[in-house]
Design a protein around this nucleic acid. Structure first.
Lengths: 331, 331
DNA sequence: TCTCTATGTGGAATCGATACCACAAGAGTT
DNA sequence: AACTCTTGTGGTATCGATTCCACATAGAGA
């Protein structure tokens, strides 16, 4: 690997001059600049980013912590982040927790020791330990997906989205609506979406049957099983006529069960989800769902982070993104 | 940010001793070790990875170059890579070319200047310039998806997979098989899969009609259009009875068109793909396809890369992964 | 002629780690 | 008593960049 010293010798100037050419700083004669650039061109020299980082405290690297790498949502969000960062010459250092909550904290520390310029956390859970770690991080930070107290975040309007979808079902004439949620350790999906559903039901003075409140865990098979339990637990004369699942994959699983059990969708049972997963467009009938603009969330988070990095402002920014109902044929 | 010097002062030892504790090297008395660990624990000190990298020339970071971040295949491969690397304490520095071939070269150089310990390239294309850059990289390197001359690679057996799928169609009694391929700038998908198809057809002495050879570009809509063209261009008495698409998304698009145009799948027209995309299981009828174990490809590549990093061997390793036909209901 | 300023260049300290080397102290050997 | 050997510690050079400061030169203005 070539170093600045060798370039300096080859161009017959000092290291300082090479550095000045590299960074367009201070005075450099045309003649010296020409010679240095020629040597750089010819040798393909690239300055060591580590030496640079050590001296300047800037790395042009952003740490991203994901729950899981290969999910559709993660992919879209990272894509959005990358779109913005790439243009500004930043790179992404990727870590995945695989839903191990202890690792979120471990990676926050690790990224700090790698001196990343900022950190974006795609959060699935919120707990006191995590919040404490974020506050003592002392580095530009943005969370996506969950609202972290006293930290910048880009979140989705889970409550109103769920409420709107429930109202949509109600407007379409469904009165007996089942619900499939997830564990409350994920506040955005587990609590807010459920509250949106409950609120819409109460506003419409519809009863919420305990037997119709299912729970799943983000996977298609778990949606299948949850739907099965709901059907099994409801007597013939007390069957729901619609089901609202808090994610598309759960909804797809529910639909799979319904088809298998001989229900026609949406005539005998309507199905709605949230998330606008790719798959939802291509199943039959196409799923009625809500699009959350994941890429935009990534872009917004990246923009906020860059602002923080460049301006050193400590102020926290909260962005709540909009949603859009996508009408399929499942309702 | 704390430095080793401050830790040394607080623990009343020299920087050398702190370093020895940190790296478990040389002699350190129990007493000194205890004091140092206590200070580290109490302060939450983490050594600067940049200073360390500058000195030791090891960064524990692997550069990964992807065509696109948010595709299902990329996600799975990166997941596999991460699984292996994470256990060994390595991080992933992610870059995406967004199919700009010039950027593949640019990122190879950039990652080199970031002094990553190794590079994994998920390749979509092979050209002389790229190959030259890889050879002069002089760093542990593994390609996934395409065979790069004189470089290690993990590839899929595209030729035999396509041949096997074609034979499967033939065994099922289909004789008039259409084909939807992609551009040849992607040798694995564009050339090898096509050759597999042609070879199986020739072995079975079946004729390959020009009108039945379509082309698409990896997207669902392009599969839709390609299928439309094939149907439009074939006279009523010369219609294919099956179509083999080189990727699942293309196959899904083709199936969409067929449904819309009133063909029943598979009775009037069978459809087969390659790739075992998630979506293929849930469309109706479920797609008959070939699973390529993308995660395994990522894992294998990571293992080969780590071997290279740790052993300094220059030897190139070529791994060709197996495949598995997944029988759906579309054939 | 003598400052004064603008331009240009190199020397040297610095960032935060590692690692080699010198040296000290105590135990064991001859 | 002189010696090796083991254990333990600190000093210092080093990695490859940036950046401040000192200094040189040349032309402008007094």
């Amino acid at each position: 690997m070539l170093t600045i010293k060798e370039i300096a010798e080859m161009a017959k100037v000092s290291r300082s001059t090479v550095s000045r050419v590299l960074n367009d700083s201070g005075y450099v004669s045309e003649e010296a600049r020409r010679r240095v650039l020629a040597v750089i061109e010819e040798t393909g020299y690239m300055p060591s980013q580590h030496a640079k980082a050590l001296r300047t405290k800037k790395t042009k690297v952003i740490g991203v912590i994901l729950p899981k790498i290969s999910t559709e949502t993660s992919g879209r969000v990272v894509n959005g982040i990358n779109e913005v960062l790439q243009d500004q010459g930043y790179q992404i250092l990727l870590t995945a927790t695989n839903l191990d909550y202890q690792k979120e904290i471990e990676y926050l520390r690790l990224l700090k020791s790698r001196q990343v310029d900022g950190i974006i956390l795609i959060a699935t859970t919120v707990n006191a330990e995590l919040v404490a770690e974020i506050h003592q991080l002392n580095k530009p930070f943005v969370a996506i997906g969950q609202d972290i107290p006293k930290a910048s975040s880009v979140t989705f309007d889970d409550y109103h989205a769920a409420k709107e979808m429930t109202n949509y079902l109600i407007r379409k004439g469904y009165k007996n609506i089942a619900f499939i949620g997830v564990d409350e350790s994920d506040p955005a999906v587990g609590i807010h979406r459920k509250q949106g559903f409950m609120s819409a039901m109460q506003d419409a003075k519809l009863t919420i049957h305990k037997e119709w409140m299912g729970q799943a865990n983000f996977t298609i098979p778990s949606g299948f099983e949850a739907m099965k339990r709901i059907i099994r637990n409801s007597p013939e004369n007390l069957r729901p006529d619609a089901v609202f699942a808090v994610t598309d994959r759960i909804a797809v699983g529910a639909m799979q069960y319904l088809k298998k059990a001989g229900f026609t969708v949406p005539q005998e049972m309507a199905v709605a989800g949230i998330g606008a997963a790719d798959i939802s467009k291509y199943i039959d009938p196409a799923l009625t769902t809500i699009d959350f603009e994941n890429e935009r969330a990534g872009r917004e988070a990246a923009v906020i982070l860059l602002e923080k990095i460049e301006s050193h402002k400590e102020q926290q920014k909260k962005v709540v993104l909009n949603y859009r109902v996508i009408e399929g044929d499942s309702v």
